[in-house]
């Protein structure tokens, strides 16, 4: 009975693989999505649809990059605070709220970012998208930082302090380096969680059919593209290539995180 759980995983993997495989090509990754019109023409002519998901890849990378730059330091600092002050009432309160934020549905994060960023900026943008992703990443990074720091033996911190270091230096040069493994895996997992999110990007980044590098205008993302393909009868073929890309990326991140966690834990 338990083995049956492996079935869906393999089924999904297999399905996406089969359907998407023939679509992958260099062009697929470097060209932006075709317009519905072009696609329609190609289908009528019986040819493969031109274009690819480059706009989505670029968009995802840009938004992820911006989100990571903010979420990682913020998450680590917050996690350090929670680890150092675990008995403090305020810290426990923040801990509860972190869990709350983590469990918040991604649509809600999308709505919030819409209210906070899209409305004041009077438009959709990559910035808005990355704010949404950032909010989703922070709780995960906070948790992994806090837990890894707490597991460190107390003697490490005490030895550092006994040498005369102040708390900041002991944290920076002794505790955080020692906690690096757990923190890094936490970051990998946060990224893998967020890279496939569609809902929060729907009302923040909106999507765009061009490859775009500016951050204050609407931008595409791979999951957004998949959603667009799903909704457009002419672009259905492209769904699978994009999904394969996304799926492999996410699985690679997850497996890497697991492997590193094991390696660093002996």
């Amino acid at each position: 009975m338990a083995a049956l759980t492996a079935v869906p995983l393999l089924a999904i993997l297999g399905e996406v693989l089969l359907r998407g495989y023939h679509q992958l090509s260099w062009a697929f990754f470097t060209e932006p999505t075709p317009t519905a019109y072009k696609a329609m023409k190609a289908i009528e002519a019986g040819e493969p649809i031109p274009g690819g998901i480059a706009n989505g890849i670029v968009g995802t990378m840009i938004m992820l990059g911006m989100a990571v730059i903010v979420a990682v330091p913020l998450g680590i600092l917050c996690g350090a605070f929670l680890a150092e002050n675990s008995k403090n009432r305020f810290a426990q309160f923040v801990s509860y709220l972190t869990d709350l934020l983590q469990g918040t549905p991604s649509v809600i994060i999308g709505i919030i970012t819409y209210i906070w960023v899209v409305v004041p900026m009077k438009g959709y943008s990559a910035i808005a998208g990355s704010v949404a992703l950032c909010i989703m990443m922070v709780p995960l990074i906070v948790r992994s930082t806090e837990e890894t720091l707490k597991i460190l033996p107390a003697s490490l911190k005490e030895a550092g302090l006994a040498l005369g270091g102040n708390k900041a230096r002991v944290m920076m040069r002794v505790q955080l380096p020692a906690a690096f493994g757990g923190i890094f895996t936490g970051i990998l997992l946060a990224v893998s969680r967020v890279i496939g999110e569609t809902a929060p990007l729907m009302f923040t980044a909106l999507g765009c059919s061009l490859i775009r590098f500016s951050v204050d205008k609407p931008i595409s993302a791979v999951p957004l593209l998949i959603w667009e393909f799903f909704n457009d009868p002419n672009l259905q073929e492209l769904i699978w290539g994009a999904s394969l890309f996304l799926l492999l990326f996410v699985l690679a991140l997850n497996l890497t995180a697991k492997y590193l966690a094991k390696k660093w834990n002996q």
């Binding site: 759980t5 569609t198 997850n254 697991k258």
Partner: peptide, 11 residues
């Protein structure tokens, strides 16, 4: 099981 948790919901 953990990998199952990682698959994006759109997929």
């Amino acid at each position: 099981t953990d990998l199952l948790a990682g698959i994006p919901s759109i997929i």
